[in-house]
Amino acid sequence: MRVAIAGAGAVGRSIARELIENGHQVLLIDKQPSAIRPERVPNAEWLLADSCELSSLEEAQMDKCDVVIAATGDDKVNLVTSLLAKTEFGVPRTVGRVNHPNNEWLFTEAWGVDVNVSTPRIMSALVEEAVTVGDLVRLFTFRQGNANLVELTLPADSPYVGKPSGLVPFPENCALVTILRDGQVYRPEAEQPLEAGDELMFVVPGELEEELERLLSPHSHGG
């Protein structure tokens, strides 16, 4: 897979290293000469260019990319880069970094963003996930499928503690994808009993989140 990353700062370089380790081709783009440091990610391609300019993206052969990641520290640049990549070059997948939470609403398909990654939201979600029991915490939004990755730590007073997960009447279109227990990751099996303190990870449509929360934690949410 060929991936172009706009923004060769600490975030962009870290993403590039991870992708290269996983066997992908990576092109790092930045308009600041001081950011072009090939020795920091020697296995990546580097391009000194402005990702908001069509000529630069043509030079980068954006039409041959499978994914474009707009990871600069400027939300305006990330939006324009995503929009050009999607509309002018037909890139199948775009990921946009959100730097300021007030701008998150802009990072949608209308601006060519398939997936937005908001650092403030992720950090707040991780804090909530670490301290809450019985409350559903949204970790990630899948734009194309109108679904969310959510987590709920099963409280001791849940009616489904000790019952096999296959007998829990989860809402339709709600998928239990993994169970975290005692530092271990478990693939959900229909006959596997749920335990108090299990961290349950779901993919669920946004409109069903409250129903799922009431199901698993009725004493806290009026179910």
Score class of each variant (00 low, 15 high):
residue 106 L to Y: 12
residue 102 N to E: 15
residue 31 K to P: 00
residue 92 P to S: 04
residue 66 D to A: 13
residue 166 G to V: 07
residue 138 R to D: 14
residue 23 G to A: 06
residue 70 A to R: 06
residue 75 D to C: 11
residue 122 I to G: 10
residue 101 P to V: 05
residue 189 E to N: 13
residue 19 L to V: 04
residue 76 K to L: 11
residue 18 E to L: 13
residue 213 E to H: 00
residue 97 R to H: 09
residue 200 L to V: 08
residue 55 S to Q: 10
residue 213 E to L: 02
residue 174 C to Q: 04
residue 155 P to T: 05
residue 212 L to G: 06
residue 81 T to P: 08
residue 176 L to D: 06
residue 24 H to W: 00
residue 131 V to C: 11
residue 209 E to L: 14
residue 49 A to Y: 01
residue 103 N to L: 11
residue 145 G to N: 10
residue 99 N to A: 05
residue 164 P to T: 05
residue 101 P to M: 04
residue 150 V to H: 01
residue 21 E to V: 02
residue 106 L to C: 03
residue 26 V to S: 05
residue 94 T to K: 07
residue 172 E to P: 01
residue 109 E to W: 02
residue 96 G to D: 11
residue 49 A to W: 01
residue 2 R to W: 01
residue 149 L to T: 13
residue 6 A to W: 00
residue 82 S to R: 03
residue 188 P to K: 10
residue 133 V to N: 04
residue 15 I to M: 12
residue 155 P to M: 05
residue 63 D to V: 00
residue 68 V to A: 12
residue 196 A to E: 12
residue 59 E to K: 12
residue 131 V to R: 13
residue 140 F to N: 11
residue 203 V to E: 03
residue 24 H to F: 00
residue 29 I to T: 05
residue 121 R to F: 11
residue 181 R to E: 10
residue 121 R to G: 02
residue 105 W to M: 11
residue 110 A to V: 10
residue 182 D to R: 13
residue 87 T to G: 03
residue 166 G to P: 06
residue 119 T to Y: 08
residue 207 E to I: 08
residue 161 V to P: 09
residue 17 R to H: 12
residue 108 T to R: 08
residue 51 S to I: 10
residue 153 T to S: 14
residue 91 V to T: 09
residue 71 A to G: 10
residue 21 E to W: 01
residue 221 H to A: 06
residue 70 A to Q: 03
residue 81 T to N: 08
residue 67 V to R: 01
residue 46 W to T: 08
residue 126 L to W: 00
residue 197 G to W: 03
residue 152 L to K: 02
residue 168 V to W: 02
residue 4 A to D: 00
residue 25 Q to V: 02
residue 179 I to D: 07
residue 72 T to R: 03
residue 50 D to W: 03
residue 41 V to T: 07
residue 208 L to I: 06
residue 4 A to I: 14
residue 135 D to H: 13
residue 169 P to A: 08
residue 126 L to G: 07
residue 175 A to R: 13
residue 182 D to L: 09
residue 153 T to E: 13
residue 47 L to D: 03
residue 17 R to Q: 14
residue 82 S to V: 09
residue 219 H to L: 15
residue 143 R to G: 15
residue 143 R to Y: 07
residue 37 R to G: 01
residue 89 F to S: 05
residue 34 S to W: 01
residue 45 E to Y: 07
residue 43 N to W: 03
residue 151 E to T: 15
residue 65 C to P: 00
residue 11 V to F: 12
residue 142 F to I: 08
residue 170 F to K: 04
residue 189 E to V: 10
residue 133 V to Q: 09
residue 153 T to L: 10
residue 145 G to Q: 12
residue 119 T to R: 13
residue 181 R to K: 12
residue 42 P to Q: 04
residue 173 N to L: 14
residue 114 D to R: 00
residue 145 G to H: 09
residue 205 P to D: 07
residue 60 A to P: 04
residue 164 P to D: 03
residue 154 L to G: 11
residue 144 Q to K: 15
residue 105 W to T: 08
residue 199 E to C: 13
residue 181 R to A: 14
residue 154 L to K: 06
residue 223 G to E: 09
residue 71 A to E: 02
residue 3 V to C: 07
residue 196 A to P: 06
residue 197 G to H: 03
residue 161 V to Q: 09
residue 131 V to H: 14
residue 83 L to G: 06
residue 10 A to M: 08
residue 51 S to T: 10
residue 171 P to F: 04
residue 117 V to K: 03
residue 48 L to A: 07
residue 100 H to K: 13
